[in-house]
Simulated assay, not measured.
Amino acid sequence: MQKYGILSNFTTNSKVVKRVFGECNLVITFSPSNNSFAFINAIEVVSVPDQLITDDAILISPQEKFQGLMWQALETVYRVNMGGPTVTPLNDTLGRTWVPDQSFLLQANVAKVVSKISAVKYVSGGATRQIAPESIYGTATCINSANDPDSNLNT
């Protein structure tokens, strides 16, 4: 029996990327709709490092700790590079895309970019290139509220 449905009622001529985290047996089933057929060009299954995602998270409301992420089906909607450029699958060890944060800012004029990519040093027991490339860790978006102390990027 299938535990998670990743894609259903789907038609396209483009590439689809779905990522599911957690320990499980992978079963892929194709069931075309009535009077149709399914054509699959390629399937790629990639095992990622265990430390890529932790097993716990803090819920926002009510604020409490949630344990058991590894037993959930998680889907990445966006990977956002705060203050940095687009990172393409060619520049990411796990073939991911990271989008810049500018389109998510409601008041982009009160934000400034800080970049220290060359200062990123990976140390044993810490973050790795598999978790994110230097251009992710070495950039940030900071509130530039010197001219407007009432500014708020989250309104």
Rank of each mutant, 00 (worst) to 15 (best):
Y78C: 03
D55I: 00
L52C: 01
N109I: 05
L59I: 11
W98T: 00
Q72I: 06
S135G: 01
C24M: 12
S14M: 13
S47E: 12
G125H: 11
L94R: 02
L69Y: 06
F21I: 01
Q107K: 15
Q63W: 14
N9E: 08
Q102V: 13
Y122F: 15
D92F: 05
N41W: 04
V99L: 06
R129K: 15
I6Q: 10
V77N: 11
V17F: 06
A108K: 15
R129V: 15
N81W: 00
P85H: 11
S33V: 05
K116F: 11
G126V: 03
S124E: 13
L74Y: 05
I117F: 06
D55L: 01
Y78I: 02
V48T: 03
V80M: 07
V77W: 06
S124F: 09
D56S: 14
V27Y: 08
N109Q: 15
T76M: 07
S47V: 12
I131W: 05
V113D: 01
I131L: 12
S14E: 14
I43Q: 05
N81K: 00
V45M: 07
F66A: 12
V77Y: 09
A42Y: 09
A57Q: 07
F10H: 13
G126A: 02
K15A: 05
L7M: 10
P100A: 13
L7R: 06
R96T: 01
V48I: 08
G84K: 01
A108Q: 15
N13W: 08
Q72A: 12
Q102G: 12
A38F: 02
S8M: 06
G68W: 12
I117P: 02
N9I: 00
W71E: 14
S115Q: 15
D56P: 00
R79H: 05
S47N: 12
V45S: 07
F30K: 08
D56L: 06
F39S: 07
N81T: 01
P49I: 06
F104P: 02
R96I: 02
K112W: 04
T29Y: 07
G22T: 00
N41H: 09
A119T: 15
S135N: 05
T76I: 14
L7V: 09
P100M: 10
R129I: 14
G22I: 00
K116I: 12
N35P: 00
I53S: 06
K15L: 04
Q107F: 14
V48L: 04
T86R: 10
I60Q: 11
L94E: 02
D101M: 01
V77R: 11
K65E: 13
K112V: 09
S33E: 08
T128V: 10
S36D: 09
Y122H: 06
L52K: 05
P62V: 10
N91H: 07
T12Q: 05
D92W: 03
E75T: 08
